[in-house]
Amino acid sequence: MNAVTEPHRPYYIPNPSPYPVVLSGALFLLGLGAALRVNALTAGWWVLGAGALLAVYVLFAWFGRVIGESRAGVYGLQEDRAFRWGMLWFITSEVVFFASLFGVLFYERNIAVPWLASFNAPHSALAPFSPWPHFTAQWPNGGPAGQGFEVVNPWGIPALNTLLLLSSGVTVTWAHAGLRAGRRTQLKAGLALTIALGVTFLGFQLHEFSEAYRVLGLTLHSGVYGATFFILTGFHGLHVTIGAIMLAAMLARTWRGDFTPENHFAFEAVTWYWHFVDVVWLMLFVFVYWL
């Protein structure tokens, strides 16, 4: 923040708002629907669908409201800072989420699998009792009762994807530079490029998943390797999707004439998120595909 001095103004406290409670209701329906659905109980899909629709509607309305407020100029420096810190802490919680998934990968690979194999060690007093007499520790591993599968070659699509996401990090920064310098065309081009890169990434990723299922025999059922592979790449893919949608929203707003060189918090928040997704991918590439 540069030193724009502001006269004192009261902190903006929004009027009573229906969105939060409705969003909670939507999440309730989503949760309920999911719980019913996975157990093949009544009405699962319907409840799930209703929840999803309601959630999409509220998110539109809520964000629309905030954008409206922002355009009306009700936010000052203090509000801006609050949004920034809020976003940063939110991303922190996401970091913890992914860190735990990496922790799971670490545990399964370096503790669980060797432990299971250790019972067979020739000198072990436990060898006669080993529940998995033919199991040896290696990674990747589908577990003692798993069927075989092949792994994705890191230097094919994944490497390409790394390149795509890294360059999307560059393009989004380029777009930001454009915004700050008031070059709106650069901003639009940068955003569009970033979205295109993100979508291409997703396309490749989907292709890779289907290859894994159809050709490599690598599925959610393929023991710990398949499980950690899909949960990590899957959640990452989900985040790329969300990020791409948010970028698209930013592009739409740019088109509408939103954002000034000084005031464009929403845009910045999305770029933070995008960089975060980028960094997660790098970790994924190294620990899931490569090593």
Binding site: W115, L116, F119, L126, F129, S130, P131, P144
Partner: peptide, 8 residues
């Protein structure tokens, strides 16, 4: 005792 593992 943990299923699939041994303890002693």
């Amino acid at each position: 005792v943990v299923p699939g593992y041994l303890r002693q």
